[in-house]
Simulated scan of single mutants.
Amino acid sequence: MIQGDTNIYAKDTDVNFLRKNVGMVFQKPNPFPISIYENIAFGPRVFGINNKTELNEIVETSLKKANIWEEVKDRLKKNALSLSGGQQQRLCIARALAAMPKILLMDEPTSALDPISTGKIEELIEELSDELTIVIVTHNMQQATRVSDKTAFFLLGEIVEYNKTNLLFSNPKDERTENYITGRFG
């Protein structure tokens, strides 16, 4: 903190500032038990956007970015829980994107999904990585090689190794990383 600059301190401690700038997508889809539209409009409303035209635009844009607009555009008033697991996960990504975060945290976002839904989420990660920073936690090494530029290997809460993904997987510097990659443990 810079002495005398209370604005920086306020930003560091403001939960809404954090919620606006850091989105979170969990391992298991967690749509709110309300309409598809209201799931996406929820965050923008929390941040003071109440204009119907603006909300409609945010909802459509967010659903398009999450590659689910075409599947749900005619049923926005339907309960979000009526969607399939893969659709619910993309809805949750759209809900996070609606707040226009700078960082998107994704905790095992495809672990409970079928291969087709997994592919859609991975394509989405690739597309979104041009717009924002995405941090993904995965135990699937193949997925890490497909979707990440940089990889950190953690063991028992410690960062063992961090490098460009292709280097970490092809030439690990730490023996523990190599043991994990080659299946000697884990």
Rank of each mutant, 00 (worst) to 15 (best):
1 M>V: 12
1 M>C: 09
2 I>T: 12
2 I>P: 00
2 I>S: 09
4 G>E: 03
8 I>N: 08
9 Y>S: 15
10 A>M: 08
13 T>P: 02
18 L>A: 14
21 N>S: 07
25 V>E: 07
25 V>G: 04
26 F>G: 11
29 P>V: 01
33 P>F: 00
34 I>H: 09
36 I>T: 07
37 Y>C: 03
37 Y>M: 01
38 E>K: 15
41 A>E: 05
42 F>A: 09
45 R>Y: 00
45 R>G: 03
46 V>W: 00
46 V>L: 13
51 N>V: 01
51 N>S: 02
52 K>L: 06
54 E>I: 04
58 I>L: 10
59 V>I: 09
60 E>I: 02
62 S>C: 06
69 W>F: 05
71 E>P: 10
73 K>M: 08
75 R>L: 05
82 S>Y: 04
83 L>T: 05
83 L>R: 06
83 L>P: 03
88 Q>N: 05
90 R>A: 02
91 L>N: 07
98 A>I: 01
99 A>V: 00
104 L>H: 08
106 M>I: 04
112 A>Y: 09
113 L>G: 12
114 D>E: 07
116 I>H: 08
117 S>M: 00
122 E>F: 03
130 D>M: 10
139 H>T: 11
141 M>H: 15
142 Q>P: 02
144 A>E: 13
145 T>F: 00
146 R>E: 14
153 F>W: 07
159 I>A: 13
161 E>H: 14
172 P>E: 09
172 P>D: 10
177 T>L: 11
178 E>S: 15
179 N>A: 13
185 F>L: 05
